[in-house]
Write a protein that binds this DNA or RNA. Structure first.
Length: 271
DNA sequence: CCCTCTGTTGGATT
DNA sequence: CAATCCAACAGAGG
């Protein structure tokens, strides 16, 4: 479920575990290397590096993140990373199942694992990695929190608030799960058009965004990352909890479909 | 077995 | 123009 919290966990894991220069690059699935993060014009890379071999013998000087994207900066290279739908970073000696890429240091190997193969890495020139990460995206939903007035301007007017929250051009990092958790925390009906929020709700929403993301990161860091698909307990307050009691009011958590995505919320809590 | 569901994203289609 | 569908994929669950 890589959204901002999982991307931040992956970034930290890379930063903490990357000790010393890279001994070897294990490219288990060549398709994981792309020439750009997406087909959008803002993600165009003029001179993509041809292979990951340039990484060997060096170590990154910066470990960046913007929204769901991660960026590593070496002296002679940069590497953009997007975890896609099921990507994560794990450490271990042997290549794990669905391992796509291994970055080996003397201390061990960091593996990009990704069953669904939507994750990718893009080798680029070292300059401008930070700019590439932000290209076309709004401010980072955690690191660059916006006040209620700014949020209101950015959200626009017509769309349901949950749909707008998931638009990376407005704020970077919020996906389907965190949108549900944020709106639950702010007690806002996900269907409400942004223009109908009003000052009071907008204030609650502006506070809830960084609060929820920080909470999710803390939870992940403590428990180690667990995916629903891996059978771990559901740590979310409403996501994936249709029919279960609302942790705040005891009412029943509802599920609906908004723009094709499952949306969980508590009808009794919203105000 | 088969059908539906799932974390992302962007482009095509209606 | 907004909503839906689809395409990249694999796997879990009913």
């Amino acid at each position: 479920m890589p959204e901002l919290p999982e991307a931040e966990i992956a970034r930290r894991r890379l930063e903490r575990r990357w000790t010393g220069p890279l001994v070897a690059v294990h490219l288990l699935d060549p398709a994981v290397v792309r020439r750009r993060l997406s087909s959008r014009p803002s993600d165009r890379v003029e001179r993509p590096l041809q292979s990951l071999e340039v990484l060997r013998g060096s170590s990154p000087t910066a470990f960046l993140r913007h929204g769901k994207r991660i960026g590593l900066c070496g002296r002679t290279w940069g590497l953009l990373l997007h975890l896609g739908m099921s990507g994560k970073v794990v450490r271990g000696r042997e290549p794990p199942r669905h391992g796509r890429l291994g970055l080996e240091t003397v201390e061990g190997t960091l593996w990009l694992v990704d069953p669904r193969r939507f994750a990718c890495v893009v080798p680029v020139e070292p300059d401008g990695v930070g700019e590439r990460l932000r290209a076309g995206l709004g401010p980072d939903a955690l690191a660059e929190p916006v006040d209620a007035a700014t949020l209101g301007e950015r959200l626009g007017s017509r769309r349901p608030v949950k749909v707008a929250l998931m638009d990376q051009r407005i704020l970077a990092g919020i996906g389907n799960i965190q949108a549900a958790e944020i709106l639950f925390r702010a007690r806002i009906d996900p269907r409400l058009p942004c223009a109908a929020l009003g000052a009071e709700r907008m204030m609650r929403l502006a506070r809830a965004i960084p609060a929820q993301l920080a909470h999710a990161i803390r939870a992940d860091d403590r428990d180690d990352l667990r995916y629903l698909a891996e059978g771990g307990p559901n740590r979310f307050r409403v996501y994936g909890r249709e029919g279960q009691p609302c942790p705040r009011c005891g009412g029943s958590v509802a599920r609906m479909r908004l723009r094709g995505r499952s949306t969980y919320w508590c009808p009794r809590c919203v105000r």
